Deep mutational scan, measured.
Amino acid sequence: MTEYKLVVVGAGGVGKSALTIQLIQNHFVDEYDPTIEDSYRKQVVIDGETCLLDILDTAGQEEYSAMRDQYMRTGEGFLCVFAINNTKSFEDIHHYREQIKRVKDSEDVPMVLVGNKCDLPSRTVDTKQAQDLARSYGIPFIETSAKTRQGVDDAFYTLVREIRKHKEKMSKDGKKKKKKSKTKCVIM
């Protein structure tokens, strides 16, 4: 069974824990209790493949930012979460993405942009803004509501699919490099 290491990042209060708990335990946590770091595991079937999701729910508070490099190193894919009623959390996505790329030393890291709290009427981040940002990053965008469960499975499952595509691409690139290195030079 394939294991996928997913990391949920975003500013404090955007609903990272609520999304994760909704996926794992099928219930909505409405009281806000700032996370330092929590880890969850769940076995699911995605596109006919049974897999184990190892999900790291991270601290959004700035005082825990020193811990970010460590979990970013171990993560295979990242859910970059903002709240649709919090423009600052949307603007912060850029910083999370840049930090992930720096730590992973790669421009090509599996990510999904997630606009959470889409059940709320007080939207300050337009869907088109988020779609445009995701398009500019070359990553999928999904709106979710941890409260109603809308888009929750889709967000995590899409990230797994992005990781699969990335692994497939990397193995193809690896095979191309191996083929090239088999060419021999004969000096007579």
Results as ranks from 00 to 15, higher is better:
T2H: 12
T2E: 12
T2P: 11
Y4T: 14
Y4P: 13
K5T: 07
K5N: 03
K5P: 13
K5Y: 01
L6K: 12
L6D: 03
L6G: 01
V7R: 00
V8N: 00
V9T: 13
V9A: 04
G10I: 01
G10N: 01
G10D: 01
G10P: 07
A11S: 06
A11C: 12
A11R: 06
A11G: 05
G12Q: 02
G12D: 10
G13Y: 01
G13T: 04
G13P: 01
G13N: 06
V14G: 07
V14I: 05
G15D: 03
K16G: 15
K16P: 01
K16W: 02
S17C: 01
S17H: 01
S17N: 00
S17V: 02
A18H: 03
A18E: 00
L19I: 08
L19P: 00
T20W: 15
T20S: 05
I21K: 01
Q22H: 10
Q22T: 12
L23M: 14
L23P: 00
I24L: 09
I24H: 00
Q25D: 04
Q25V: 14
Q25N: 05
N26T: 06
N26R: 09
H27S: 09
H27Y: 05
F28D: 00
F28I: 02
V29R: 01
D30I: 03
D30Y: 04
E31W: 05
E31D: 11
Y32T: 14
Y32E: 00
D33G: 13
D33Y: 08
D33Q: 01
P34Q: 14
P34E: 12
T35M: 15
T35C: 15
T35L: 15
I36V: 06
I36A: 02
E37Y: 11
S39D: 05
S39H: 03
Y40L: 05
Y40W: 08
Y40F: 09
R41I: 00
R41T: 00
K42M: 05
K42L: 03
Q43N: 06
Q43R: 12
V44C: 10
V44I: 10
V45A: 10
V45M: 11
V45P: 09
I46T: 10
I46M: 07
I46C: 06
I46P: 14
I46Y: 08
I46W: 07
D47E: 06
G48A: 05
G48M: 04
E49G: 07
E49Y: 08
T50C: 07
T50P: 12
T50S: 08
C51Y: 12
C51T: 06
C51E: 06
L52M: 04
L52C: 06
L52K: 03
L53C: 05
L53H: 07
D54T: 02
D54K: 00
I55F: 11
I55T: 15
L56S: 07
L56G: 05
D57C: 00
D57F: 00
D57G: 00
T58E: 03
T58A: 10
A59M: 07
A59N: 06
G60Y: 14
G60L: 15
Q61L: 03
Q61C: 03
E62V: 03
Y64V: 04
Y64L: 04
S65M: 03
S65F: 03
M67C: 03
R68D: 01
R68S: 02
D69N: 11
D69T: 04
Q70C: 07
Q70D: 11
Q70M: 14
Q70E: 12
Q70K: 04
Q70L: 13
Y71F: 04
Y71S: 15
Y71K: 06
Y71P: 05
Y71I: 13
M72D: 01
M72K: 02
R73L: 06
R73M: 09
T74N: 10
G75H: 04
G75K: 02
G77P: 02
G77N: 04
F78W: 05
L79E: 03
C80S: 02
C80M: 13
C80A: 04
V81H: 13
F82R: 00
F82N: 04
F82K: 00
F82G: 15
A83V: 02
A83P: 15
I84P: 15
N85D: 08
N86Y: 01
N86C: 11
N86F: 01
T87R: 13
K88V: 14
S89C: 15
F90V: 11
F90G: 09
E91P: 01
I93C: 12
H95L: 10
Y96A: 11
Y96H: 05
Y96W: 15
Y96C: 08
R97E: 09
R97A: 10
R97H: 10
E98D: 07
E98A: 04
E98T: 03
E98Y: 02
Q99Y: 15
Q99G: 04
I100V: 12
K101E: 14
K101M: 13
R102G: 07
R102C: 13
V103S: 11
V103W: 15
D105I: 12
D105F: 14
S106C: 09
S106K: 12
E107A: 11
E107C: 12
E107R: 11
D108H: 07
D108F: 11
D108S: 07
V109G: 02
V109W: 10
P110M: 03
P110A: 03
V112W: 04
V112A: 03
V112K: 01
L113G: 01
V114Q: 00
V114S: 01
G115V: 08
G115I: 11
G115D: 03
N116A: 13
N116D: 14
K117P: 00
K117Y: 13
C118G: 10
C118H: 08
C118T: 09
D119M: 14
D119P: 10
D119E: 10
L120C: 12
L120M: 10
L120A: 11
L120G: 14
L120K: 13
P121A: 13
S122K: 09
S122L: 09
S122G: 12
S122N: 13
S122I: 10
R123C: 12
R123V: 09
R123H: 11
R123M: 12
T124M: 10
T124Q: 12
V125C: 10
V125M: 09
V125S: 11
V125H: 12
V125I: 10
V125R: 08
D126K: 10
D126M: 07
D126T: 08
D126P: 07
T127F: 10
T127A: 06
T127G: 07
Q129V: 08
Q129A: 12
Q129I: 04
Q129H: 07
A130M: 11
A130Q: 09
A130G: 05
Q131H: 07
Q131C: 10
Q131D: 06
Q131V: 09
D132M: 05
L133I: 06
L133M: 05
A134E: 05
R135W: 11
R135K: 12
R135L: 10
R135E: 08
S136N: 04
S136D: 14
I139C: 11
F141R: 03
I142A: 15
E143D: 07
T144I: 14
A146S: 11
T148G: 12
R149T: 12
R149L: 04
R149E: 12
Q150Y: 05
Q150K: 05
G151E: 04
D153W: 07
D153E: 08
D153S: 10
D154E: 11
A155F: 15
A155S: 11
F156C: 14
Y157D: 08
T158M: 06
T158E: 12
T158A: 08
L159M: 13
V160T: 03
R161M: 02
R161G: 08
R161L: 05
E162I: 11
R164W: 10
R164D: 12
R164A: 09
R164F: 14
K165R: 09
K165V: 11
H166M: 10
H166D: 13
K167N: 06
K167W: 08
E168I: 11
K169R: 05
K169Y: 15
M170I: 08
S171C: 11
D173H: 07
D173V: 05
G174L: 06
K175N: 06
K175S: 05
K176C: 06
K176A: 09
K177W: 04
K177L: 05
K177I: 11
K178L: 05
K178A: 05
K180W: 11
K180L: 10
S181F: 09
K182F: 12
K182P: 07
K184H: 06
K184W: 01
V186S: 12
V186F: 14
V186A: 09
I187T: 06
